[in-house]
Design a protein around this nucleic acid. Sequence first.
DNA 1: ACTTGACCCTGCCCTTGCGTCAGGCTGAAT
DNA 2: ATTCAGCCTGACGCAAGGGCAGGGTCAAGT
Lengths: 267, 267
Amino acid sequence: MSLVRPMSTFRIQEFAKLGGVTVRALHHYDRLKLLSPAHRSERGYRLYCHDDLGRLERILVLRYLGLSLHEIAALLKTPDGGGAERLPVTLARQRAALAARRAGLDRVLRTIEHAQHRAQDPAEPEWFLYQTILKEIHMQESTDWRAKYYSPEAYQALREQRAAMTVEQKADAGERWRALLGDVQSAIDRGISPDSAEGRALVARWIRLGDEFTLGNPEILEGYRRLNDDESHWPDDETAAQLRAIKPKPEHTAFFNKAVQACLRHG
Amino acid sequence: MSLVRPMSTFRIQEFAKLGGVTVRALHHYDRLKLLSPAHRSERGYRLYCHDDLGRLERILVLRYLGLSLHEIAALLKTPDGGGAERLPVTLARQRAALAARRAGLDRVLRTIEHAQHRAQDPAEPEWFLYQTILKEIHMQESTDWRAKYYSPEAYQALREQRAAMTVEQKADAGERWRALLGDVQSAIDRGISPDSAEGRALVARWIRLGDEFTLGNPEILEGYRRLNDDESHWPDDETAAQLRAIKPKPEHTAFFNKAVQACLRHG
DNA sequence: ACTTGACCCTGCCCTTGCGTCAGGCTGAAT
DNA sequence: ATTCAGCCTGACGCAAGGGCAGGGTCAAGT
């Protein structure tokens, strides 16, 4: 009977069995500071308590839902209150991501079935099979890569908005963004204060344009933020080029934020 | 105009664009010897030819279907003839694997939807939500892990066979396997030659028993082989224990193979 | 001839979620 | 005193590349 061991604690192996995970996984979570045992024995043994089991269960649930350990840590880090608030958002995003993955899998499965069907025909040479599959792939890959940044509802709303716009309207919107950013740049170059009347006028234009785009939907804004923050992963196509053209530079957003502060101060 | 560069070859970047992949990926494929350029310039530049493009396209198709680069290399390594033969088998297996993944994704998605629905209720505490999801997970995880080793048709056949057997029949079959392996072990211990009459008698028993199990279906045999070859990844449940009990040791299979050779030699 | 800029090479470390040793302690029972 | 199970840390491996560093090469413009 060990006197060192506080009551109702578990050594790592017991705890692993309780949670249905391996010892190594627990080591891993400990190193990531995702789940550290409540205590350590004098000699360094990990001693998990009952609350740790609750946390582990939460972790396992979120892992099952496909979140990365990093995301799980972020979600569980909040002193709670925030956790309950962010959970629904996370669920929605994760659902969208998984639905997209499933759609991708479905396409691959259809392609395989198609290929199997055609591979039956001995008259068809193999290289032809590869060629046609490749064409299918290229066609399918032309799906909108921006989708993954938005919640499903937000993306749906965006698509409706885009569908309702003519080509000229889209070009015009792009042009107005570019013009606005140009004006902001020029204001910065001329040393105009964000606090000035001109600064505040620019802010007003920015906000109007933004609302036009986000439809006042904060989820769209959130998605757009994530999209813009991930520029390094954009593919190299025309969509990306258009996006880059209307992407505000850090100094522009800095100017914008300062000007907003100024407006708030002045009421 | 470079005189060093043979006609109709591409440097790595051109080639990457033709194939729609990155330069780094081509480096990677080269290092894995999956796709090495037809030539190198004097100074070490990779020079890809038109045939390389064909091979790359094959690689991309198979990658799209979810095969690992290792599997792709194996499939493409055969001097062809074997390639055309193994392709349908590969497609079937891959389809089964992807279908399983899709089913898993479906379950997760349903779980998320369920959770979203219940998270609406503000009366329900968060921990309770986690608890019930965890229960769902445990229920879903109790699916037969052996399925992934078999083609869908083979697994279906196996299940029908199992359903048709009574508990006693199953126990009896296990017992006969264990007895056979015991007798083989004893034959080895006693220095009996696989070539002897006793050796050949054991082979006959082995084959009969095997046929009873595989129903003469080579796909089942194939799946069983893969299952047995992957013992290190079996989970730690009762099914695994039963499987281990009837798993022939390497020396048993060696004895078996020698005895089969002997039978073949003697007609 | 020289410089510039685009392109190429190799090699090394980074990612995710652990598994798998390896070497060395600890704890409890024999 | 030994022995065996259990614990620790640290390092390396995996798949499919991404990213970067340091250094060489090619073609064009000056």
